[in-house]
Design a protein around this nucleic acid. Structure first.
Length: 819
DNA sequence: GACTGAACTATACC
DNA sequence: ACGGGTATAGTTCAGTC
């Protein structure tokens, strides 16, 4: 039997004590294919130096005899081979110890505590990762496979019986079809549920929507006066769940996609199914979803990849996004230009018959948005999966460190490297005690309104330093050596060999692929080329964070400290060089430098850039970020020093770039944010403060006359941990408690909204005046003037020597006099 | 009881 | 626990006079 095959979902099972993979995928005809395969299972024992041939022979003999009878199965060492390998770049002699079952490698490693063995490695990768590395059956790549058809046979304990696939093949041969572009259009089904209570399983599921390319359905037992065509009525919640399963099975998607569905929709369905004593048998083998334990639930369905698209967006894109929250509404707005349907959710008992049609539509559209978001990010997910070589299920849930680490693990073989182990819990606590390393340098600006500014920045600074200076855990030298890359840090002077290490080499590969992908995208801008560029960008930008992350296999505080020391050095050196040429540097943060170009022409600045670049080592590169007509820097609140990380620029093409100001912070009320935004824009465009001052006076007047709507004064603050863990009772904690009393569901991550009301008695603390947005009350004019408006504008006008405090307070006294 | 600095908290920048 | 450090700023809390 021969067919094409694109692997999608990976699973494994034991048969006669051995491990077998069960991979579900599709062939070119769109048929669902399952392949059964196995691979050698082994771990590495790194031998001590200077062992004699005889000693090695004796060790091999000893190890070959290891037999274990644990967890109800027999496992043994089946073969031992001697190999010349590398571990952390150093040549080592290592024994490749083959055993029966991957899950027993740990126990075998425990038996290897003998003096000739220095280290034991390679048994903590997970069987699927081990299998993919070993057999190179990579996810989402296209193969031509050969094997025996299994047709409800009893082979492998009848694994294919009751498995809903078109073909089940015992794999014999697989050939990667390299040159053919994989045209793989997966079947996607998005879903979303509506319930009467947000606590998992507590309320009833009122309806569930299912949306795929040519399918739209809302299943509900809550009837309206008229039934839209996409709605299907069922008798009750039990039937709703059964109907849901029926449709999922009928459509049989490759991906079942939800938004926050790991934490809500899927566990909810499971809990309600349990309550009604029915099985949520969504798996291709009729199994129920399985949930991982831990803080973050993840729901796995066998054969169908369950994807919580929120998780992927959060990990890979949140840092580049404008949205203030990751709610479906905001994320859809940013990426799709579409929003949720307006509908105010109430408990079903409070809904009138006429409301239900809107509720159906709302529910349906949430699935539409979820589907569209998946489509939007599918090219990215595909790229990440192909590059990192971990299954889609994991790629969409891994954090950045796991993505980087997986990439490294899947590429060690070409360096003949034995993988490093995960840190033990002792190592983890030690690493946490290491404390932080000194970070980047930020130039203290002199407050003012400047004209004609140029901004340079280093291209992917940390990444290019790692590559150019060959920095990593394994290239760090124990002793000083000549002709090395060295750097002084607070933790001592560190030396790195110039012989390329595997981590900097792999990073260089990613970096070059990113460059290619980026130019590809520029030549031919489309979602596919953009996704390639994005994936390499995110991956390469995360490597420095990975090295400094205490949970990393290739963690190195020395390497991390060195990278940051180089970051400071290159930035400061460049500032000096720019100043030497007679320019005034006004600001810089980590990898950027802003300076005044005075009367010089742009061409002269570009030649300065060229000069600076000529002196930079390796692949390091300084770029022109842009030319700016005007720029505004202010003092800190204390009013003495220039504030770092707070500035605004007006580019030549009249675009405004605002950084750090209250305008861009979501924990300030809209009024203060909008006012500041207007003022900054006006000042940058006009070059003076006159109009802005009038605008400020007008707003102050309006607030005193209570002409500002309360919505403009709502302060939004996120709960970062459970309420009980707060040591200080802050305003937003008080508001959260009020919400809790009102039975509004809250938890870590909830954006708490409140306003500050007038005090009826002498209430000094802000928290005593906190009210929820729909609580009646008058807002506190004094608070908003002094704690929101004034701080937002004070240091801006200070640049023009205008004392805003007098303007605000002076008028206030007059108004108070009126009372 | 008013004042003040430290601690706690959130959020931004790169 | 699931990249990192640097920085600003508000509010509460605890200690001082």
């Amino acid at each position: 039997m021969k067919t094409s095959f694109i692997p999608i979902d990976y699973d494994y099972f034991d048969f006669n004590g051995r491990n077998y993979t069960k991979i579900i995928g599709r062939n070119s005809e769109g048929k669902r294919v399952c392949i059964i395969d196995s691979c050698p299972v082994y771990l590495w024992a790194i031998l001590k130096n200077n062992l004699s041939q005889k000693e090695i022979g004796d060790v091999i003999k000893k190890i070959s005899k290891i037999k274990l009878n644990i967890k109800g199965r027999q496992t043994k060492v089946e073969k031992v081979e001697l190999h010349n390998k590398k571990f952390l770049e150093k040549p080592v002699k290592a024994l490749k110890i083959f055993a029966t079952n991957y899950k027993d490698l740990h126990d075998i490693a425990d038996k290897l505590g003998i003096k000739e063995i220095e280290k034991r490695r390679g048994y903590d990768l997970g069987f699927i990762t081990h299998y993919i590395i070993e057999k190179k059956i990579n996810p989402l790549q296209k193969y031509e496979i050969e094997g025996e058809m299994l047709n409800n046979s009893s082979e492998f304990g009848g694994v294919d019986m009751g498995l809903d696939v078109d073909l089940c093949i015992n794999l014999k041969k697989a050939k990667l079809l390299e040159n053919k572009k994989t045209k793989f259009f997966p079947k996607i089904l998005a879903y979303d549920i509506e319930t009467d209570d947000l606590k998992i399983g507590k309320g009833e599921i009122l309806m569930v929507s299912l949306v795929s390319e040519k399918f739209k359905k809302v299943i509900t037992w809550k009837k309206s006066y008229s039934k839209p065509s996409y709605v299907e009525y069922v008798k009750d919640e039990t039937e709703l769940i059964e109907k849901f399963i029926e449709y999922v099975k009928k459509i049989s998607p490759d991906f079942l996609v939800g938004y926050f569905s790991d934490g809500f929709d899927l566990p909810y369905l499971k809990a309600r199914a349990e309550k009604h004593k029915i099985k949520l048998n969504l798996g291709l083998d009729n199994s129920q979803p399985r949930f991982s334990r831990g803080i973050n639930l993840t729901g796995k369905i066998k054969g169908i990849v369950h994807i919580d698209i929120l998780k992927f967006i959060k990990t890979a894109y949140a840092q580049y996004m404008k949205s203030e929250t990751l709610s479906l509404n905001e994320v859809a707005k940013e990426f799709l230009g579409d929003t949720k349907k307006p509908f105010k959710i109430k408990h079903s008992s409070e809904l009138e018959k006429k409301d239900w049609n809107n509720y159906y539509e709302y529910n349906l559209h949430d699935s539409v948005l979820t589907l569209n978001l998946f489509q939007k990010f599918w090219p990215d997910i595909k790229e990440f999966t192909k590059i990192v070589k971990e299954p889609v299920f994991d790629i969409t849930r891994y954090g950045l460190s796991k993505i980087v680490e997986s990439y490294l693990l899947h590429n060690l073989e070409k360096f003949n490297e034995i993988p490093e182990k995960r840190p033990t819990s002792e190592e983890l606590s030690q690493r946490r005690r290491d404390g932080p390393v000194e970070g980047a340098f930020v130039f203290e600006p002199k407050p003012g309104l400047y004209e004609n500014i140029a901004m340079f920045d280093f291209t992917s600074m940390h990444t290019s330093i790692i590559i150019s200076m060959n920095i990593s855990k394994s290239t760090l030298l124990e002793k000083p050596e000549k002709n090395t890359n060295s750097i002084e840090t607070k933790r001592g002077k560190f030396y790195f060999t110039k012989k390329p290490g595997f981590l900097p080499s792999l990073l260089k590969e990613i970096f070059e692929q990113r460059r290619k992908a980026k130019s590809e995208f520029k030549k031919n801008p489309n979602p596919i080329t953009q996704a390639g560029s994005n994936a390499f960008k995110v991956l390469s930008a995360s490597v420095h964070g990975y090295i400094g992350f205490f949970g990393a296999r290739y963690y190195s505080k020395e390497a991390s400290a060195s990278i940051l020391a180089f970051v400071r050095k290159f930035n400061k050196d460049t500032i000096k060089n720019i100043e030497k040429k007679g320019y005034k540097v006004i600001y810089g943060d980590t990898d950027s430098i802003a300076f005044l170009i005075n009367k010089n022409k742009e061409i002269e600045i570009k030649s300065l850039l060229q000069d600076l670049n000529d002196k930079l080592p390796g692949i390091m590169e300084l770029e022109l970020e842009g030319f700016f007509e005007r720029g505004l820097w202010v003092t800190t609140r204390a009013g003495i020093t220039g504030a770092k990380k707070k500035y605004a620029l007006l580019s030549k093409d009249k675009k405004i770039k605002i950084r750090g100001f209250e305008t861009v912070r979501r924990d300030w009320c809209n009024l203060a944010r909008k006012l500041q935004d207007q003022i900054i824009k006006q000042i940058l465009i006009d070059g003076n403060e006159k109009k802005s001052l009038e605008y400020l006076k007008d707003i102050v007047k309006k607030i005193k006359q209570r002409k500002i709507r309360k919505e403009e004064l709502i302060i939004k603050t996120q709960l970062k941990k459970p309420i009980s863990e707060y040591k200080a009772t802050t305003p937003h904690v008080v508001a959260a408690k009020k919400m809790h009393e009102k039975k509004i569901p809250i938890g870590t991550g909830t954006l708490i909204k409140y306003y500050v009301a007038e005090a009826n008695q002498k209430k000094a603390l802000v928290r005593e005046r906190v009210k929820l947005p729909d609580e009646p009350g008058k807002y506190d004019i004094k608070y908003y003037l002094e704690r929101q408006i004034l701080p937002a504008v004070e240091n801006i006008f200070q640049v023009f020597k205008i004392n805003t405090k007098e303007i605000i307070e002076g008028k206030k006294q007059m108004t108070l006099g009126d009372f």
